[in-house]
């Protein structure tokens, strides 16, 4: 199990939270998703054998939110 933190551009609409949390949590291997709205960050816990941080990042980007930086630990 790994934790990835994605820094996004400033989030302004609270509905973005649901959009991102909903989509990511439906992905295989994703255990936990939390959008830190005010910090404009997405925190995820995922199983690195089924899904990669890069794929999560791509999904977030496709939703319309460019990812500025990624931290995996």
């Amino acid at each position: 199990m790994k934790t990835a933190k994605f820094q996004l551009e400033t989030l302004t609409c609270p509905s973005c939270i649901k959009k991102i949390e909903g989509t990511l949590s439906k992905m295989d291997g994703v255990e936990n998703v939390k959008v830190l709205f005010h910090a404009s960050k997405v925190k995820t816990q995922f199983d690195e054998s089924t899904v990669q941080a890069e794929e999560l990042k791509e999904t977030i980007r496709k939703l319309g939110y460019p990812v500025l930086s990624t931290k995996v630990s």
Partner: peptide, 14 residues
Amino acid sequence: LKAYQSLCMKAFSI
């Protein structure tokens, strides 16, 4: 576009 993107995610937005 934003409305369409949220709708794809089944979210109703302003």
